[in-house]
């Protein structure tokens, strides 16, 4: 039985797709059979971030409507044989998804995979609700910014009331907080919410902290999930996040501005990137 994890946020553009791609890739690199599903029907992006856009033939909607089989729609990742991508449709609208259709697909995938990662669309409407409905765990992606934190709290409300686990009175969805685009310099200046405050306000368990990083744009340009860039801060931060998801206890990094060494202080030089 696969573990179904939704990557969700409420607010748009906070880093759900970036995170879903990185985490799915990380899980696969660690030997887990993983599939990542794009639920953003009509506005698909995951294929670009995963670098498989030219190999998309069939999509989630085709499978739900019986126009293609699941195995025809699944794309095998170029870099990791444990990883598959199920793209969203570019042309249909989100009403093409049905609860029963999604349930059937997740049911078949569950037999084959260890992890199913669902990349949710923004918002709290139908598309986002379908993406989270069958989840066992949720990664709530939040930026250090008021509207993002408020929307994350709305999503927490949905997770605890409008999911299958909630409706069947089963053990609730396990909620994880993933803070992304964190900039410790601005936190030190007092102009960005700090990590402890965000954790205190949302009151859920922290799974990872991803710094604002130039590596993210670079990797999306190339269609290679940032976790492959293991020299980069964001890549390392996602690798830590994956370890924690797998139950390991790893210390938090990138929370503070690195102390500059004597040499760099003597010779000036910019901050780290």
């Amino acid at each position: 039985m696969a573990k179904i994890i939704v990557v969700t946020s409420g607010k748009g553009g906070v880093g759900k797709t970036t995170s879903a791609a990185a985490i799915a890739t990380g899980l696969a690199l660690r030997g887990n059979k993983t599939v990542v599903i794009d639920f953003d029907v009509g506005l698909r992006n995951l294929d670009l971030i995963m670098g498989c856009e030219r190999r998309v033939v069939y999509d989630l909607v085709n499978v739900i409507q019986g126009e293609a089989g699941l195995n025809q729609a699944l794309i095998r990742d170029k870099r990791s044989e444990n990883l598959h991508i199920l793209p969203a449709s570019q042309t249909r609208d989100k009403d093409a998804l049905t609860l029963e259709g999604v349930e059937t697909i997740l049911g078949s995938l569950s037999e084959e995979f260890d992890y199913i990662i669902c990349d949710s669309p923004a918002g709290i409407e139908r598309g986002a609700q379908l993406a989270l409905y069958f989840a066992d765990e949720a990664i709530v992606v939040t930026n250090p910014e008021v509207s993002s934190v408020r929307d994350s709290d709305r999503i927490l409300g949905l997770l605890s009331s409008k999911s299958r686990r909630a409706e069947q009175n089963r053990e609730p969805i396990k909620e994880h907080l993933l803070v992304t685009r964190y900039n410790p310099n601005r936190v030190d200046d007092g102009d960005m919410l700090n990590l402890d405050d965000i954790c205190e306000i949302l009151a859920i368990n922290l799974i990872g902290l991803i710094p604002e990083s130039e590596a993210v744009l670079r990797s999306s340009n190339q269609g290679v999930p940032v976790i492959h860039d293991d020299k980069s801060d964001a890549g390392q931060a996602y690798a830590d996040t994956v370890s924690r998801l797998m139950g390991e206890d790893v210390p938090l990094r990138f929370q503070h501005v690195p102390k500059r060494g004597l040499i760099s202080r003597m010779f000036g030089g910019g901050g780290r990137r």
């Binding site: 008021v146 709290d153 605890s160 009331s161 200046d189 007092g190 102009d191 960005m192 919410l193 306000i201």
Partner: peptide
């Protein structure tokens, strides 16, 4: 007053209100 602490105070009120309406 630092803007981040204003943000925190506002969020605490908003979230408390939202949670009161949950479910």
């Amino acid at each position: 007053k630092k803007s981040a602490s204003v943000a925190k105070e506002r969020l605490q009120i908003i979230v408390a209100h939202q949670r009161g309406h949950r479910g």
